[in-house]
Design a protein around this nucleic acid. Structure first.
Lengths: 372, 372
DNA sequence: AGGCTTAATGAATCGATAG
DNA sequence: TCTATCGATTCATTAAGCC
């Protein structure tokens, strides 16, 4: 699976593979506008000095790897602009980019993203259920990290956001920008033979699960330019998404490859996401008349019975002086600029008042059955 | 109390007063290295277009004031650098600076702070207990704002941080970087004769209470260059700190002055407002999947085994034609309007059928155990 | 008074499609 | 590219109104 050779320029993507080497070089060799989502966990530029001990004098295993060392803010900014620009080229016009970071680097990353034209959709805070405490008592316990989610530009509005799936996931309340999740520990945390952490900043699968569930569809291509030990690949495989990993250190890539190979994908049938009305086939009001569910002359009312209108043969409504579509007349009788006539207007049924939206559902089910 | 005359250059500070005018000009007339803490709530540079309506067609009262309009990122950056540099001069060597913002501006502010030499101590997220929802279903609900807390430089280590006071405040757990607090509403929110809000972005006193309690001592001087309606002054007076407010709009300053005059310095009386314990974290059904306690494809049944449903990867259930949350599908299969999915749906375990609510308890215990 | 229902509102970068 | 139309979308809290 792992490979050090650059991907062919325009002949398809190296799907479900890990490219070993510098991410900017590899990104430049991938076709433009070819991936759906990018998740990036770049070096945080932690700027630590000296060793940190816990109150019991044990040593904290800090992130002091060479890849996290930069000479200056300018050097870090140069690095950041380079990989962000390379990612931008590879991203589809309606793709989105996720970046995770801490206060050490996230402000510089966010600024660079805005300067490159990315349009910020949300910042999301990963609130850690079990963060490392602050041992010196000189600051607040650093209990969160920040993710930035962005589209390619202000006018790129057709990005993927599985709103209803996330809402169902969250017990029918819309998902918020604060996610409380435990850090990566226990059996999920990769350890070597000595019990040492394989990677100092392995992200929990739960975090990537929520990222990919919200912003990708099954079959989408997810690229991770700082693949590390491959959490992005693990969750992508489990959720039926394709991944492309780029990792500079062969040791991390090897650990990732073995880890991903052991993953069992979720059953295909369970991968569907809850769809909203936006994805349902459009049914004009006139179809209800054609289907015989509504007859010309029928009186519609609002839920309270305050407003009334009569159905005309051409699918328009008439209410006093107002004539027009179900939406237009609904807006006019209320004095609003706009109105969703499907949920505003009701018909009298045995069970009481019913929105005409329910009749539309009947038409949809009917045509689905007829199509089989 | 309010005054438009500049403060004398070196003859003491205009304590407990509001200076009306541009903050950079006023800051330049104050003595260098003279204030202990600065709290700044600058314009966020929201870039709104068009009107936003709620689903009930009511209009969202947006922040469209002239003071929040900037021509470009460059103009906003110039503005930011100017006030930050002026603040830096006035700050004592061991003083600290707080800035609050949202994803629209906070990345630029944080970058500018680092570039000017400020040393970031923490970023703190104000998680809103009751944020405004997302009305169009196209993003995550923007449920937090970010504060940056910084010292004057890497070597300025003798700043004030009342670690033990905060720990006692937080039920003997060290204070974390995520603060859940309600937005400013009710009697605390300033309204004019017509019932309209006096300031569009009034901050809650509980937020300033925590800021000043953590990073100032009684008698310290707190400066706020974007004073608005004076929440910083209110809390400073209540906590026995001195304040200097700078505000460009005389109307805001007048409201602040009247508000502060009515404040009784009585710390203990206000403690109860903010000392409220964080309630048990809500665990949505999706978290059980993220935690691996439930896998996509698993079959759930009701207690009698009459109804069955399959778990999907997005945290929804599927039962015949019904797809949706645990609650929605529970209601649909029974023909009810509502259902508590947590107690209705069960999983097969060695000990027999078990409600999924028991698994939720495991998630809560798991994060608590991991935190120890 | 008290309990219930209805209305109001908050730092918001909040469409898609056919013609 | 612009315009008109269709029609999708909300949570917690406070306050007011109504029996």
């Amino acid at each position: 699976m792992a490979s050090a050779s650059p991907a062919p320029a325009a002949a398809g993507l190296p799907l479900d593979r890990i490219l070993i080497g510098d991410c900017v070089a590899h990104l430049m060799s991938l076709p433009a506008q070819s991936v759906d989502v990018i998740f990036a966990d770049p070096p945080y530029n932690l700027q630590l000095e000296g060793a940190l001990h816990r109150p019991d004098q044990s040593l904290v295993d800090a992130v002091d790897d060479a890849w996290d060392q930069f000479e200056s803010f300018e050097a870090y900014d140069d690095f950041t602009r380079a990989w962000l620009a390379a990612c931008r080229r590879v991203l589809k016009p309606n793709g989105t980019l996720w970046v995770i970071g801490s206060y050490h680097n996230i402000f510089r990353v966010g600024t660079a993203m805005q300067n490159l034209g990315f349009w910020l959709l949300n910042d999301v805070v990963w609130v850690k259920a079990n963060p490392m405490p602050n041992f010196r008592g000189r600051r607040f316990a650093n209990a969160h990290e920040t993710l930035i989610w962005a589209s390619k530009g202000k006018d790129a509005k057709n990005y993927t956001f599985n709103y209803h799936a996330l809402k169902a996931f969250n017990d029918d309340l819309q998902m918020r920008s604060d996610w409380m999740l435990p850090i990566c520990s226990g059996g999920e945390r990769l350890k070597d033979e000595d019990g040492a952490k394989v990677h100092p900043t392995q992200k929990p699968e739960s975090l990537l699960y929520r990222v990919l569930l919200s912003s990708t569809n099954p079959g989408d291509v997810v690229l991770d330019p700082f693949f590390g030990t491959g959490t992005t690949g693990v969750v992508a495989k489990r959720l039926g998404r394709r991944f492309i990993g780029i990792e500079r250190e062969a040791g991390y890539a090897a650990a990732a490859e073995a880890r991903i190979a052991a993953v069992e994908p979720a059953p295909q049938a369970s991968l569907g996401v809850v769809a909203g009305k936006r994805t349902a086939p459009r049914v004009p009001f006139g179809s209800l008349i054609e289907a015989g569910l509504v007859t010309p002359g029928l009186e519609l009312t609002c839920a309270r019975g305050r407003h009334r209108a009569v159905v005309r043969a051409d699918g328009s409504l008439e209410s006093g002086p107002h004539v027009g579509s179900i939406h237009k007349v609904g807006a006019l009788v209320q004095g609003f600029d706009a109105c969703n006539g499907w949920t505003f207007w009701h018909v009298e049924r045995e069970a009481g008042l019913q929105p005409i939206d329910a009749l539309r559902d009947l038409v949809r089910i009917g045509s689905a059955v007829a199509a089989e």
